[in-house]
Design a protein around this nucleic acid. Sequence first.
DNA 1: TAGCTTATGTGTACCGTGTACACATTGGTG
DNA 2: CACCAATGTGTACACGGTACACATAAGCTA
Lengths: 214, 214
Amino acid sequence: MSDASTPSPKRSTYRHGDLRNALLDAGIALARQGGPDAVVLREATRQAGVVPNAAYRHFASREDLLLAVRAYALSQVAHAMEAELDRLDPSMDALCYARGSVRAIGTGYLRYAHAEPGLFKTAFSSHEQVESDHDPAKAGASGMNPFQLLSMALDRLAAAGGLPPERRLGAEYLAWSAVHGLALLVSEGPLHHLPEPLRQALGQRLLDMVEKGL
Amino acid sequence: MSDASTPSPKRSTYRHGDLRNALLDAGIALARQGGPDAVVLREATRQAGVVPNAAYRHFASREDLLLAVRAYALSQVAHAMEAELDRLDPSMDALCYARGSVRAIGTGYLRYAHAEPGLFKTAFSSHEQVESDHDPAKAGASGMNPFQLLSMALDRLAAAGGLPPERRLGAEYLAWSAVHGLALLVSEGPLHHLPEPLRQALGQRLLDMVEKGL
DNA sequence: TAGCTTATGTGTACCGTGTACACATTGGTG
DNA sequence: CACCAATGTGTACACGGTACACATAAGCTA
């Protein structure tokens, strides 16, 4: 979290040293508890111990800072997905593995939505260009964003014969839609405080539905 | 839209007559184009031709106004659902009719999300108590909110044998989740500008998925 | 009908947020 | 060592939500 943690109200150096990261860290912390609306530029600068306008040397606007936070959140979602993918047994036959991949993607998504509701909401508020830009270097470990990971899993499924070619087109939107809805309910909604096993079960049923229905 | 439309900067009467509704109308208009964040108290009072603080005689806070707008939006969603339900042929056998009901609910939801993205987002931002309060009089024509309509359709489906009893519990969340995700993509996201037939097709595929997977 | 009460709109004021613009400070480079 | 570019500061403004005191009108009551 860089050196933004130094609680000194006025640092002595004038030069901060790493303000951009300090602001980003603060923004992430704000988003974590409170979602995108909680990412307040002035509050971030306060936490970093600088004057509000200092932020403008590193971000063009509040929106720009929020975008950086979103990029971080997206990469975290991707990480969560990859963590589930890593639990798969690679020795399975191709079809099972492909199905498991799609499930893992969904499970990671749902897990993250529940574990980090604020960041999750931040990642997907304003669904604009979820798949586009933000330089590839800082995405997930594999360099892919969540949407790309899903696409890949679906490609694998199609290749293994688990998804008829005529249904491949648009399949990411179907799968994403279905899981995203539940993720929202789980992250900010009525289902967040559901007992763990029940939530888990709902997730599994939903993934069953996707698997059968794709 | 009441008499809020009179463009006179200062009305002559001092008493507005129906300020509460004028503010509500303005709030609805704002939400329609811009979603919940666009519901700005001061702007609503401007459109109504009164001073900002006048709003506080009718709404406890901005949040309170937003709540009223949300209630309206929810009732509109319910209407859209009922409109689809009305298109069903009542002479079908019970199972078909029940399945058609569930589909109709989903179709109405998706239609509304596309037709009125701003109000749709307003209706379901902050998923808190979607099913609770807001006096029954001003809900849909049947007096039911979207969630209740879905519940009813699922009850019908279960009664007709189209949904095993052990799967009835939580079924509304599964169905809602799946459709809600697509509705979001369609209302604010990458899928809003999809050509009509494609969007329609995606919706149908999703509803197929729900039907099979419930 | 005069006067009181209450509902409803007005004025003024304060704080928080985003952001523009000019100025200060400092590390690095010729 | 002088200068420059990068980066932080100060001041200032517009906008939004909202509290508090005040004005005005609509009705009721005497």
